[in-house]
Design a protein around this nucleic acid. Structure first.
Lengths: 223, 223
DNA sequence: AATATTTTTTAGACTGATCTAAAAATTACA
DNA sequence: TGTAATTTTTAGATCAGTCTAAAAAATATT
């Protein structure tokens, strides 16, 4: 694994991002827009990263990541998301405040730090936005997630993500005792309005509206 | 408070360091040695930092920090030492492994991060090496410290620092239940060999040799 | 298919931080 | 006190990352 500058890491992360929800190849202008630079600067950097075998680049025809480039991007993403978890779970930041800080922290390279942080956080599989955290080999956890609203009554699982981070929503979740990692059982689903009756952490029983349940993601426990 | 580059921060920190245990003025070569650069580079940087009013600089006659420069250096030191505490207390690194990592983390600028980290760590006043942590205004805690060996019998206090970090020493401390933050009472001092009898955290009673007690620093509780 | 538009690359310049080599100032000492 | 040794500064170059403006290639349009 090569040592990259912060700048190189940021390019790699942006390219990964664009390819993931973009497609096969990504163009210079797109990258420039995402990294906050100009197309000319991107061209230079692409040459550099291609020489390092992190991406394959044909002039005028966009780039894609090599195996190594993709893996490197995933390890950067891993650091980013672990720090997000730390900031939210330990330092009590709100989910929408952590992006900028995590972007600074992700470039701290010391390798044992990442391992210890992961351990300290309890090997989380998802970040506070519900995005999966790659493992130390750059592999995804393949545990499937469901939207709570779509979980059939009788199932039990764990809240792994929230897809709305308005203050009001978070406050509400707090009130009914739901948090990332909370164990939940779906007891019943009300036909009339789609609301759910559920047990949280084995004791408290709550009713959640369809709107709320649609913004919670869970992984199910094998039944 | 101006925004400084990582490089500028490192120079400032080094200069602070040299002045603290050096004296009035510090020379270009010394700074170069500590920052791992050459005297010529230091000259350039001194000009730059002098223009930013962080230090006062007269050609050929060394530098000293201005009020603002010293305060800035202390806030960098604050970040450094808070991260040290985090790495040791939370991530369970050994005291002698954290320097390089903390040096990377100290340059993460997001201001709310430092406040939250401080709070999360319980507003520590000393880092794992026993060095004091400046407050958010760049002021020192003025609680005086003593070497445990010199504490008169009958006094009570708290262990705030260890001045030896050999594995054997740490292991021994662990065995007798002493750690940073441990509450101790000096019960008696043996004339013969200068060893101490003390109570740790209100219950366990230990005997510490003079050598060991000479490597522990405490702050005394008002009696 | 020829031309117009858009995208990408190149050329050349700038900034921040660094270096080496040479010049200048300070300090040491004979 | 005058010369030698040391320290510091300057001059000029290099490197990474960026920019603007112009050239080149690809794509779209008529």
């Amino acid at each position: 694994m090569q040592v990259l500058s912060t700048t190189e890491e940021n390019y790699l992360k942006s390219i990964y991002q664009l390819l993931k929800d973009g497609g096969e190849k990504v163009g210079t202008n797109e990258i420039a827009a995402l990294t906050g630079t100009k197309a000319a600067s991107v061209s230079d950097m692409l040459k550099k990263l291609a020489e390092k075998r992190l991406l394959s680049y044909q002039k005028y025809h966009g780039v894609s990541l090599t195996e190594e480039g993709a893996k490197t991007a995933l390890l950067i993403l891993r650091r980013y998301r672990l720090w997000e978890v730390f900031l939210v779970e330990k330092l009590k930041f709100n989910w929408d405040e952590v992006a900028a800080i995590a972007e600074e922290l992700e470039h701290v390279k010391a390798p044992p730090l990442v391992r210890r942080l992961d351990e300290y956080l309890g090997f989380p599989k998802f970040d506070p936005h519900g995005d999966p955290i790659p493992d130390e080999f750059g592999e995804w956890s393949h545990t499937p997630r469901m939207i709570l609203q779509e979980v059939p009554p009788g199932s039990a699982g764990k809240v792994v993500a929230v897809t709305n981070s308005s203050a009001a929503f978070l406050k509400y979740l707090d009130k009914v005792g739901i948090y990332i990692g909370a164990r939940i059982e779906v007891l019943d689903k009300v036909e009339f309005d789609g609301s759910l009756e559920l047990r949280v952490d084995g004791d408290k029983t709550s009713f959640l509206s369809r709107e709320v349940a649609a913004n919670l993601q869970v992984i199910l426990h094998p039944s």
